[in-house]
Design a protein around this nucleic acid. Structure first.
Lengths: 102, 102
DNA sequence: TCTATAGTTCCATATATATCGAACTATAGA
DNA sequence: TCTATAGTTCGATATATATGGAACTATAGA
């Protein structure tokens, strides 16, 4: 297991990568939950899905600069990189998090 | 050929559909070009790609509420639905259009 | 009515992405 | 050192999406 994660520098991320990370129902769900919870472990967020699936989605979100994973003992704490995202893509996350269903 | 298009009511569109429409390099390109041109025909925007491919992308963007197609004689004029999108998802398109490369 | 142009639709194929079980790793605690 | 827990990695399969050729349609203009 990788006991260290690489979090991309947001300056090197293009909007397309960010949008692709967000354009998935499971991941959008993760993002919304993380937003309301502030910080959460992976297992808190696996909605009866296999761990391997969730691990994949977390990886995509991490690579897309959306969240930061901090290892604390045996659990991994995830937080949205809201401030950094706001600096890089002003208004983007605000707009997405504010959006409610149809 | 359908000589009439159905443009979805933005109130019935969820953010996921919008994000998925935008999370593609070709379509993001179309959106950016449309933004700088104001209005453009499909053929103006087909960057040496087959018409069938572009037609598909325009369809996705249309279904995602991103653009409006108006038929004028033999050409189809496309415009971004910026005002409506701004009302439905405030700040979203502004953020995406403002984003520059990495 | 013939032709050219703009764009769509259909269909098959390619490609990317998601899903998920099984085996693995890393840490905490008994 | 043994066990339980949290999460990753691998690999195989399923599913969605993109691509693009060919045939089609609709309109304008000669």
């Amino acid at each position: 297991m990788a006991n260290i994660y690489t979090h991309p520098d947001l300056d090197e991320l293009d909007i397309l990568t960010v949008l692709r990370a967000l354009a998935d129902p499971v991941r959008l769900d993760i993002v919304r939950h993380l937003h309301s919870l502030g910080e959460a472990s992976c297992s808190t967020l696996l909605a009866s899905r296999p761990k391997s699936s969730m691990s994949h989605h977390f990886q995509v979100l991490r690579a897309g600069g959306i969240l930061h994973t901090r290892i604390e003992g045996v659990t991994h704490r995830n937080t949205l990189r809201l401030e950094e995202l706001e600096k890089r893509f002003p208004g983007l996350m605000t707009a997405i998090l504010a959006a409610s269903g149809p």
